[in-house]
Amino acid sequence: MTNPLPPPVVTPSPIADLSYRTYTGPLRTRAVRWWVVALYTIRKARRSPGFWVLSAICLLSYIFHAIAFYVQLNVSSAFMAQSQRDYVLPFFSAMNGNMNAYCLMGICMLLGAGSIAGDQRVNALMVYLSKPITRSDYLVGKWIGLMVSIFTVAVVPSLIFYVVMAAAYSSDGFFTQTHWLLPQILLAALVPSVVLSALMTGISAWSRSSFTAGALFATLYVLTGIVANIIALAMFQHQFHLILLIRHASIPGLIDAIAQRVFNAKIPGNRFRNPFSHKFITAPALSFSLTCALVLVVVSIAAARVKIRAVEVVRG
């Protein structure tokens, strides 16, 4: 005769206990609460298919430049002699090319247009700010989250490109030419991330519709670039320093100016079919451009902060 099995021990699962229990666990310090908002924005970006599509297009631009560099190097050895090889220029061209710039703008619009506008539309600000976080925590979290997403898209392909180039040309003097290339890449990726994310955050805070915020941002980005170029080429043809200044007096122009200075890149003037085609189009001084970018960022963030409120106070 076998002994019967002992009855199973039933331990009540915590989830089966439907009564309310208060939370007595640990709490993180208040100083890092903004990171919760930032992390949520980053997670949201990761879930967006559009983000991955645009990131892939960004990567394509680097592949194109890598192939172009390889072809130039191998097909025409006279075109690029050993001593004339410029390993930095492909990075500048890839990071600052139109394809990359518009992809970053697209990602910024996709992720940032609704970041605050969407919260305002569905009254989610009330939920955020009824928790122990300040308006600044919320704003910084939204901004940094967007910035990190854009920065990742800008910097990761560049780093992959760097590794590929280093592996392929380390014996051909790659490292002797590129002592500062890594910091240059990081800075050139950081600038558009900071500027675009700040601007988008500022516009989003002033809107209750993601569509309106995105459209306004895109218009501002594209239109300022076009207008600046037209004015530069049409009105100041005989004053070269004004061409340089006006051409960069736009959002893409400002980012381009900083990238040019960071990479110390020289663009031949004949690209622009102007009387100065024999000259190089150099950008305004880095300090000047960085100051302008800083002003743009501060104004955008300050403007956003004005609009972020838990409650709408109508003064009688």
């Binding site: 915590p14 666990g25 993180r28 919760v36 908002v37 122990p132």
Partner: peptide
């Protein structure tokens, strides 16, 4: 998490409430 709970505890607590 916005109220300061660590992520791992917040998810368990969310299920409870």
């Amino acid at each position: 998490e916005l109220a300061g709970m660590p992520a791992s505890l917040a998810i368990g607590r969310a299920h409870e409430v």
